[in-house]
Simulated assay, not measured.
Amino acid sequence: MNSNSEYPIELTVVMPCLNEAETLEICVQKANRFFEQHQVKGEVIVADNGSTDGSQEIAQRNGARVVDIPTKGYGSALRGGILAAKGEYIVMGDSDDSYDFSNLMPYVEKLRKGYDLVMGNRFKGGIESGAMPFLHYYLGNPVLSFIGRLFFKSAIGDFHCGLRGFSKKAFLKMDTKTTGMEFASEMVMKATLLEMKITEVPIKLYQDGRSRPPHLRTWRDGWRHLRFMLMYAPSWLFLYPGLFLMIFGLLSSVFLVAGPVQIGSGVFDINTLIYMSISVLVGFQS
């Protein structure tokens, strides 16, 4: 039960939605079942991003509150739904039935203990066969999560898990701006930079119930995540590459000043020295 009079309910479940008629009903039903079974005072918000397949009616028929979000994008839909939430705590998750909304107690327990952000970890909880594309499993998620941990000294193992919980107060402090899929990275990055209290819980990822392709675009959205992380990590974008160029250029120039250097059939002479000098200048300017 919610003892904080500032919020009328304890938990809001926010589901972004764009033509999810195939799976939305079961997702809302699972969330409502969770509220009933665990006696949690809650609500479901469906943040609709312009569905044309009747998703809005399905949501309302199952007791969810529909919030229309005119600005397109995953981040826009979630941000609009979160801002409309009445709960002290919020759990967000995709409405494609890839997450089990009837199993949210691990999130609620952590939030009640004072954590600002509770991330799910699909790699610890298990990934059903076929639930995650090969590239996402072996390249996209591991690499981007590693970069996130490296750049921001975060302990989070699964940066891009779509099922996560947080307090509304913490979300407002994050002041998120992104409108696309990089919203997922922005939340973790800003929570880390603001030194918020963050933890993880293992969760299982299931194969989604849709017959159409997902909205996620592997290379485009992967690049957007990486670009955004680089924007918030200027040392990795400018300082460290600049130092490497400057040191490499200086060391190479020292060898080339004495005269041409031959390695195998290749000869490094005055032209190489010019390039190394440019490397030093570029590195210094960075």
Rank of each mutant, 00 (worst) to 15 (best):
Q37S: 05
L83V: 10
G54D: 08
Y74I: 13
V67F: 11
T52Y: 00
Y74F: 15
R65M: 12
R79S: 14
R61D: 12
T52I: 09
L78H: 01
G81F: 06
A59W: 04
V46I: 15
G42H: 06
E43C: 00
R79F: 04
L78M: 11
V66Y: 07
K72A: 15
G80P: 11
L83D: 10
Q39E: 13
R61T: 11
K41Y: 03
K86F: 00
Q39H: 14
H38N: 14
H38F: 13
I82N: 04
D53T: 07
A47Y: 05
T52D: 07
A47T: 02
G75I: 07
P70R: 07
S55D: 11
A47W: 06
F35E: 05
A84Y: 06
S51R: 08
H38P: 00
L78R: 04
N49I: 01
N49T: 00
Q56I: 14
T71W: 02
E43V: 02
K72Q: 12
T71Q: 15
P70T: 05
A77R: 03
I82T: 03
S55T: 08
A47F: 03
Q37V: 00
R61S: 14
A47Q: 04
N49H: 02
P70Y: 05
Q56D: 14
G73S: 11
T71Y: 08
Q56H: 04
L78T: 01
L78A: 00
N62T: 02
R79D: 14
A59I: 10
E57Q: 15
A59V: 09
I58P: 12
G73F: 06
R65V: 12
G54C: 09
G81V: 07
E43F: 02
A77N: 03
I45F: 07
